[in-house]
Structure formats: structure tokens, C-alpha cells
């Protein structure tokens, strides 16, 4: 009974991790990719840890798995924030289809608008993703 429940939970976690990885490949720029990677992989990994805790059914395993889940929930958004902020500060551009960039307008006014988004060109990631998807 426990084993079946644990396997289902771990399966759900793996599915979310997989969606995160697909997002990493298909989405067009750093910021969108970080979103997919953080959200899906955080929840997916938490599900896997929960499944491990259910499977083990012992205090030793359960406590460790739950503590790991808490750590991941606390640290992964911080890491995502650091990556996104670092990317922007070092000049990584937004995808050309982005609709608004208030951060650039207000915090980096010296950077001309056409340098904030990527120029449209053939063979962009989104186009490539569309063809293969």
C-alpha cells in the first residue's frame, strides 16, 4: 500500500521535473527558462522527497526528506532571483516578443531600448522548439 502510494507520488514528481526540463528547452530566453526550471523542478523534487518519506515510513528517512524539501522551497526561489538579476545586470536581453520592460526603463535608462531585447532572427530557440514540437 505504502509502496504504491510512494511510487505514484514519485511519478508525479518526475512528471513535473520533466515539464521543467521541456520548458528549459522550449522557452525563448533566460528569464522564461528560469521560471520553468524553478517552479516545476521545485515542486517536482518536493514530490519526489515526499514519496521517499512515504516509502521509507521511518522517522530517520521522513525527517531528512522533509527537511530537504523545506530547504529546496526556501533556496530555489532565491537562486532563481539571483540568476535573473545577475543575467539582467550583465546585459542578457529579453526575448524580442516581450511586451514590457519596466525594469530596464527605470533601472537601466542608459541602455537603449533596442539593446534590451534580442533582435529577431531566423533560427531562434522558440522557432526551433516549434518545429521539433
Amino acid at each position: 500500500m505504502n509502496e504504491t502510494a510512494a511510487q505514484i507520488i514519485i511519478g508525479v514528481g518526475l512528471a513535473f521535473d520533466l515539464f521543467g526540463c521541456i520548458g528549459l528547452v522550449r522557452l525563448p530566453d533566460v528569464y522564461n527558462r528560469v521560471q520553468a526550471a524553478t517552479k516545476c523542478v521545485t515542486l517536482g523534487t518536493c514530490f519526489i522527497l515526499l514519496g521517499t518519506a512515504v516509502y521509507g515510513m521511518s522517522a530517520a528517512m521522513g525527517i531528512k526528506a522533509m527537511l530537504c524539501a523545506v530547504f529546496i522551497l526556501l533556496t530555489s526561489p532565491v537562486a532563481a532571483h539571483a540568476i535573473a538579476r545577475g543575467a539582467y545586470k550583465s546585459g542578457v536581453r529579453l526575448w524580442e516578443g516581450s511586451v514590457v520592460d519596466l525594469y530596464g526603463e527605470e533601472k537601466h535608462p542608459s541602455r537603449p531600448p533596442d539593446e534590451r531585447t534580442e533582435p529577431a532572427q531566423a533560427g531562434e530557440t522558440l522557432g526551433a522548439g516549434r518545429e521539433s514540437g
Binding site: L27, D29, N32, A36, L94, G97, V99, Y103
Partner: peptide, 13 residues
């Protein structure tokens, strides 16, 4: 992510 058209409308607000 799974939708064939990748329906996103990204931006920084």
C-alpha cells in the same frame, strides 16, 4: 510548455 505554440507574453513589470 507543452502547448504546441508556447503561448507566452513575457515582460518585466
Amino acid at each position: 510548455v507543452l502547448h504546441p505554440d508556447v503561448p507566452i507574453r513575457p515582460g518585466i513589470v
